[in-house]
């Protein structure tokens, strides 16, 4: 399984044509205490860079964009009741949605862990 990152601080773990998407540790830290998460329902078609989910802290609301195009197969229902999970386990348990990639070549435009870490370091 490989993990990729976007400049908007989403991550995607890919296994074949299946992807799992969430937001990075950096993103949750920048937002602060997460109070609400809205994930897409199964069957929704997402396109690369399009709105996919919403994540909110008390004073900020952020769109989560889809790192790739595809069809949602599951949203993480747990986050509705436990938004704090995004703070606690951003890159593991607090995944936002799973999708079937429609164009895996889009992954080529994303960063790997090392490139993302370097990108984040440049922001501070």
């Amino acid at each position: 399984m490989s993990m990729y990152f976007t400049k908007d601080h989403e991550w995607i773990k890919v296994d074949g044509d299946t992807g799992v998407v969430g937001i990075t540790a950096y993103a949750q830290h920048a937002l602060g205490d997460i109070v609400y998460v809205e994930v897409p329902e199964s069957g929704r078609e997402l396109r690369l860079g399009g709105d996919a989910a919403v994540v909110e802290s008390v004073k900020a609301a952020s769109e989560v964009y889809s790192p790739v195009s595809g069809t949602v197969t599951a949203g993480n229902a747990v986050l509705a009741d436990q938004p704090a999970l995004v703070n606690e386990s951003p890159e593991d348990q607090a995944w936002f949605f799973k999708l079937t990639l429609s164009n895996p070549t889009e992954l080529e435009g994303l960063m790997d862990r090392a490139a993302y870490d370097e990108y984040v370091a440049g922001l501070e």
Binding site: D33, V35, E56, V58, P83
Partner: peptide, 9 residues
């Protein structure tokens, strides 16, 4: 100070 995070969660 009031717990605004709790209020929103």
């Amino acid at each position: 100070r009031l717990d605004e995070t709790l209020a929103a969660r």
